[in-house]
Write a protein that binds this DNA or RNA. Structure first.
Length: 951
DNA sequence: AAGGTCACG
DNA sequence: GACGTACGTGACCTTG
């Protein structure tokens, strides 16, 4: 058993061509031909099965051709020029090759301008130089040049022809070419290659080529020898076509020093998780493979035995045989294996074991859902599968005289756990650990460092879901998807509705089953998901963007923001009076009382009773009465329309803001604490709930009254810092539009500049139109959509779109390129590597497909903007601290809110002058050094005695 | 629980 | 020939 690394490089493109011709024309349930894909899938399966054998891979990557131009075309324009187009029923299988590779959770490498052979050569050399053995899974004769026996610290390189199940080493190469690998290129240069349209010497085939190279030792010597030959056809041809041979020599030379798009280390094989493989097999009707996967022991590698599903004897027959014992087995969840920790002694024992393990899954149980006000009821820990415990701390209800179960005293438990949860040397894993961080922070514990399975899942699989359902990142879903396990649900334990009991009243045995299972499952999910980050290229966004944010956002939630209750109450009062009056007026006009808030009733009144025109809409058959319709009616002189609009605005403001916000003021802190979701938006944006502080009114005068109620504490001010036009700036950079980049560099008003480019002059009207079009571009444009917004005909809107693309051609290129990439790979990517998946991008349903296309155009821009502000947030408090503005006691500058492109701070009035430049710098430089933008990031900062005044 | 509406970036 | 037309969210109301 060797511990030597062994890299497998799979030549995916070559394989599929051969599989296509060898296999019957199967189709999947959707009717797509999948014969070649099936062949490819079985090959990967076989490779994965070899995982544990001495010759099996420790690292593996699939290399694909990017069907286009390579440097060889620059040398020889006829290179591969005689290739017939791929067969019609093979074409749709190309993208499926990527899907199949991803289904196996394997890395997939392709690079513009490089052929698969060159990438393979570069990786093979790099790995061999590090002493790794390399196997190239291909039978391409060009690649035989790479075969080497290694030695002297260099690894060996061989090839594997999986179709013939044959290994190709030096001997096999000599058998085929008559010369060693180092001379294969010379032979190929003479014989040429009709498939790649490499000329070689006309009339010289393998036999002659081999003979010439054997005799003369290399190509140049062979060509030089021609002069001395006796007259023959061969002599003539060698002399006449010498240049062809020399060019061919260059064409067959593999580029071995190409930059490696992904480091070798990231190719480490950590086993094949059951999902997404099972879903893929299911989709394509590969039922026999699916059965083998479900059978567990027929799974493609030992590590699939990690899935406890349906394995009653998994522990028995899945004994480790391979060379990677660091991979623990994962038996089925056994709730009876959990311990209920009821003495300090046992607790200390668990803490000691966790310190030694350096990795512990943590979960807290509380009396309510809101982390800021909920009380701690218990804590569970997991150190491995079924190796978990629950530490009850406040069970037995609130009745002081009732008999309570034995529990470790809260303060003693906190004291025992604190060194563990704060230890730099122990990674704490949680599912949404921000929640636990906040709960424990109230007990004086600063949990760090952490990993979060929910966020890891998000960074891997955002947007990915079969049919739009089950794409979430909640623990029950993840357990189901990745472990095939159904967790005890909260409902099972606490009941529902009126009969629901607080967790603290759940009997200990049941509570232990539930709570420890959560920690156990979290530990298992981490074991499965964390390695995928490296394999699938998610490390960057996780480590550089999302993970650093967890503690930062937790702190913002704890900080909260002060809201002036009296001001809100006054507004509520005022809105109530006004709406009552308007309600009466509307009823008068309608000639009857009705529920204005009911779109159904309102529609009937407007369009049936009062006879205004306006069509039905939607499947519900109901009249639409939204703002746009009402504004149209108002324009046509319907007095009721404006009143309904005003009624709607005021009831909205009252119910959603002035009433609701008062209830959200925390009775202990006197402030409002929102909860941010780090996985809320598919694009990578945060979302805010309970209350949502990202949609506080600002656009209307009356709405801004609500913003005035967000205030600083005495002696402080609020500071709001906005990125100005960040999405348009990013579009200019990403689509490489010189005109727009110049405009931003010069600090121009971007909508005016757009108007000037498009219409030649800037007026209020043209600027407004240009602004609409600029946004339309960011959102994925359609002529009808734009027409609707601008109130023009679709033709005219199309003309404007054409004009826009003409003036900013980079934009069209960006759109086309983005869509191509998403169709091919299934996901879009931000500048920081955040993926968003679009499973419906190739849907046959037009509306569905076009919807995905629009979202896919927007996602890289919106997502990059989200990445940037997240990086700014992660760096903000350290930078302020370094500037002496944020002492550890929390007395200086505090970051309170994030609203997508805006950060809100509260700070002592006297700190503004010093803090503003620091905040501005951190925000402006947030992309650096990872990404260097062609446009400056503009920041606008304001301060005041309310959130409104800070704008 | 779903649909309609509307608040924000 | 119909489809259904701008991206991303969350909260509230009414209705079934």
């Amino acid at each position: 058993m060797s511990d030597k690394n062994h890299l497998y490089l799979v030549d995916g493109s070559a394989y599929i061509f051969r599989a296509y011709h060898r296999l019957p024309p199967l189709t999947n349930p959707q009717g797509t031909p999948v014969g070649a894909v099936y062949g490819y899938t079985t090959m990967l399966w076989k490779l994965a099965e070899d995982l544990d054998k001495a010759v099996g891979p420790t690292h593996l990557a699939v290399i694909l051709d990017k069907a286009s131009h390579s440097f060889r075309n620059d040398i020889y324009d006829q290179y591969k020029a005689n290739r017939p187009p791929a067969p019609e029923d093979l074409v749709p299988q190309f993208p499926l090759i990527r899907d199949a590779t991803r289904a196996f959770s394997l890395p997939c490498i392709e690079e513009e301008g490089l052929e698969a052979d060159d990438i393979i050569a570069s990786y093979a050399r790099a790995a061999a130089l590090q002493g790794w053995d390399v196997t190239i899974v291909s039978s391409d004769k060009d690649l035989m040049q790479l075969v080497s026996e290694g030695g002297n610290g260099t690894g060996a390189i061989d090839m594997l022809d999986t179709m013939k199940n044959q290994r190709i080493g030096r001997e096999e190469v000599i058998e085929k070419f008559g010369v060693g690998p180092e001379l294969v290129g010379d032979v190929l240069a003479l014989m040429g290659d009709s498939a790649d349209n490499i000329p070689g010497i006309f009339g010289v085939g393998p036999k002659t080529a081999t003979k010439l190279i054997q005799e003369h030792g290399n190509l140049t010597a062979a060509l030089d020898s021609a002069e001395a030959m006796k007259t023959s056809k061969l002599k003539e041809r060698l002399i006449e076509h010498r240049a062809d041979a020399e060019m061919s020599r260059i064409l067959v030379t593999l580029k071995e020093d190409a930059p490696l798009p992904q480091p070798l280390e990231e190719f480490r094989l950590d086993g094949v998780p059951k999902e997404p493989l099972a879903a893929f097999l299911q989709d394509h009707g590969f039922t026999s493979l699916l059965r083998r996967l479900d059978a567990g022991n027929g799974s493609p590698s030992r590590s699939t035995d990690l899935n406890p599903a349906k394995q009653d004897n998994a522990g028995a027959d899945a004994a480790p045989q391979g060379n990677r014992q660091d991979m623990p087995e994962m038996p089925a969840v056994d709730r009876d294996a959990y311990e209920c920790v009821q003495t300090l002694d046992r607790l200390e024992h668990w803490v000691a074991r966790a310190l030694a393990a350096r990795l512990v899954a943590v979960d807290t149980e509380t009396s309510a859902l809101d982390a800021i006000s909920a009380d701690l009821v218990g804590i569970s820990l997991a150190l491995g599968p079924n190796d978990a415990c629950y530490i009850p701390l406040a069970h037995g209800g609130t009745d002081m005289f009732a008999e309570k179960p034995d529990q470790v005293e809260l303060a003693a438990a906190i004291a025992a756990l604190k060194p563990l949860l704060e230890s730099d040397a122990v990674l704490k894993i949680g599912q949404n650990i921000k929640y636990d961080i906040n709960v424990l922070a109230r007990h004086g514990i600063a949990v760090a460092p952490v990993d979060d399975t929910m966020i890891i899942s998000f960074d891997l699989d955002a947007g990915r879901s079969e049919d739009g359902i089950g794409g979430g990142h909640g623990m029950d879903e993840l357990a189901q998807r990745h472990l095939g396990h159904s967790c005890l649900s909260f409902k099972d334990v606490c009941g529902t509705g009126k009969k629901q009991i607080p967790f603290g009243e759940v009997p200990l045995e049941k509570a232990t089953h539930y709570a420890a299972e959560d920690a156990d499952v979290t530990w298992r999910l981490h074991r499965l998901l964390r390695p995928r980050l490296a394999i699938e290229g998610g490390t960057r966004v996780y480590e550089q963007v999302d993970r650093p944010l967890i503690g930062v956002v937790a702190a913002m939630e704890r900080e909260g923001i002060k809201v002036d209750r009296a001001a809100l109450a006054r507004l509520s009062e005022q809105f109530a009076t006004t709406t009552a009056r308007i309600e009466t007026e509307i009823h008068e006009i309608a000639g009857q009382a009705f529920t204005i808030g009911s779109p159904k009733q309102l529609g009937d009144i407007l369009f049936d009773k009062l006879g205004y025109k306006g069509g039905r809409k939607g499947k519900s058959g109901q009249y639409s009465t939204d703002q746009a319709i009402l504004e149209r009616l108002a324009g046509e002189g319907a007095p009721i329309a404006n009143k309904v609009l005003e009624y709607r605005q005021l009831t909205k403001l009252k119910s959603t803001y002035t009433d609701a916000l008062q209830d959200k003021i925390n009775r202990d802190t006197g402030r409002v604490h929102t909860s941010y979701s780090l996985v809320g938006a598919q694009t990578g944006r945060l979302s805010s709930t309970d209350p949502n502080l990202q949609n506080i009114p600002i656009r209307t005068e009356i709405g801004r009254e609500i913003r005035k109620a967000f205030v600083p504490e005495a002696g402080n001010v609020l500071l709001a810092a906005d990125y100005s036009q960040i999405e348009l700036r990013l579009a200019a950079h990403m689509a490489d539009v010189d005109t727009l980049k110049e405009a931003f560099a010069a600090g121009e008003d971007i909508h005016s500049r757009t108007a000037r480019e498009m219409y030649g002059e800037v007026t209020r009207d043209t600027r407004a139109q240009a602004k609409t079009i600029n946004f339309a571009i960011l959102y994925g444009i359609s002529r009808w959509g734009l027409a609707g917004r601008l109130g023009v005909e679709a033709d005219e809107a199309q003309a404007m779109i054409d004009r826009y693309f003409e003036r900013f051609p980079g934009i069209q290129r960006y759109i086309v390129h983005t869509l191509e990439q998403v169709r091919e790979r299934g996901y879009s990517e931000t500048l920081f590597g955040r993926k968003t998946w679009f499973p419906r991008i190739n849907s046959k349903n037009q509306a569905e497909r076009q919807g995905s296309e629009r979202a896919a155009i927007n996602a890289p821009i919106q997502g990059t903007s989200a990445d940037i502000i997240k990086r700014a947030m992660a760096r903000m408090m350290p930078a302020l601290h370094d500037a002496g503005l944020a002492p550890k006691d929390g007395s200086g500058v505090r970051m309170l809110l994030q609203v997508h492109d805006e950060l809100v701070f509260e700070l002592p009035e006297g700190d503004v002058a010093a803090a503003a430049p620091v905040i501005e710098r951190v925000m402006a430089e947030a992309a650096l050094p990872s990404v260097i933008l062609d446009v400056p990031l503009g920041i606008e900062i304001g301060t005041g005695d309310s959130w409104d005044a800070a704008h």
